[in-house]
Amino acid sequence: MKITQIETIFVDRYLFVQVHTDEGITGLGESGAWGYLEASAAAVETFKRYLIGQDPLRIEHHWQYLYRWSHFRGAAIMGALSAIDIALWDIAGKYFGVPCYQLLGGKTRDKVRVYYHVFGDTKEKLIEGCKQAKALGFTAVGHLTPFLDESRDVPYFKTHVDKMQDAIETVGRYREAVGKDVDLCIEIHRRLTPAEAIVLARGIEPYQPFFYEDPILPDSFDAMALVAEKIHIPIATGERLHTIYEFEALLKRGAVQYVRPDVCMAGGLTHCKKIAALAEAHHVGVVPHNPLSPVSTAACVQLAACIPNFALQEYPIGENEPPKSEIVKSALKLENGFLIVPDVPGIGIELAEDAAEKYPYRPREVKTRLHVDGSVVDQ
């Protein structure tokens, strides 16, 4: 079997990669470099110069060849490599007639617990979102900020005490709204300094969040370790990291209790299985990052199905509604806050033939928030 063609397909706000073979088997993957999809598509075009004519089943060899040939790294390149890797695993599963997880060691669970996205630019909307998620049967909610999902057009300013007290009070209201039936995954979006992150974590500790996600920028593993050392709630981080080497640097510092590899960014199924094994050796759970399409969700479920230290899966809003529900032929089955692990060959999902025509590409606007003094704010 040989690779005959590789397509990059822009749909809505997503970049898909389809790998075709001379036996009529096609594999599907997705790039997670959502801010740089055009650059990621260009990287796929570069990789094609090597991949056309190759045996698609030599997945690890191709991964190493493409990762190591030019010595350059980064989100756009790793998103491209991840999309190709997922597509190759999809081909392998279809070729052997089994789900990808079967080729990765077999199934460790029959269903995958998920957390539901909650959004809102007011506390009331966020609290109502938590209640609605509970009513829908979810046992965990995430993407849940104590700072509100405010517009980036609005200049930011708060005093330290107002910022901290208001955020602590907000998390308390989330807990009050859902009781003990729902876990809270508190999302900070890297917007705090280490000092602020420590103050806020100590303040929300009584509400026992499942995890405290990305409290600071991911650039310094030592700074993340400092925060982890001084707080008593679990840190979840890793969605901006790309390699086993970066995750090992976090893990050996005790800077993370839940790693968050993005299957569409951190090297696909090949590399994320290794990241999960590193985490397992440190008694750390895996919460795959997934802000993308149902294709990403399907790939994440394949990973969750075959690793022993899976903890929780991010499940973005709208998977069963347009446009997401019409991008793919059929979504994964959700029951009472769990995705059922599919038993079909490959990653278990197919792109709709008319997806690109029905939902043309929408490039993301380059926009970040500013402080009232004109400086850049992390949000």
Rank of each mutant, 00 (worst) to 15 (best):
P323C: 09
A311V: 10
T8M: 03
I59S: 05
A298R: 01
I9V: 13
E319A: 10
R364D: 15
R113M: 12
I84Y: 02
V199F: 02
R73H: 13
D262A: 11
A249L: 10
P363L: 10
V171I: 12
R173N: 08
Y361Q: 05
Q313L: 15
L269S: 03
I59D: 04
R191A: 05
E187T: 06
I25C: 03
A279K: 00
N336Q: 15
D354V: 07
Q165K: 14
I59G: 03
A80N: 02
T46W: 03
C264A: 14
W34L: 14
G53R: 04
G203R: 00
G97F: 08
V178P: 05
C264T: 11
R113F: 09
T243Q: 04
K324I: 07
A281D: 08
A223E: 14
T26V: 15
I349E: 01
V341S: 02
P99H: 01
I127D: 03
E60C: 04
L57C: 11
Q132S: 11
G267L: 01
V112F: 05
A80E: 05
E335Y: 07
A197S: 10
Y115K: 02
Y14N: 04
A225I: 05
P194I: 10
E280W: 02
K111F: 09
K107V: 11
R113L: 12
Y101N: 01
L184I: 10
S151D: 13
L241I: 08
G203W: 02
I340L: 13
V161S: 12
A298H: 00
F147W: 06
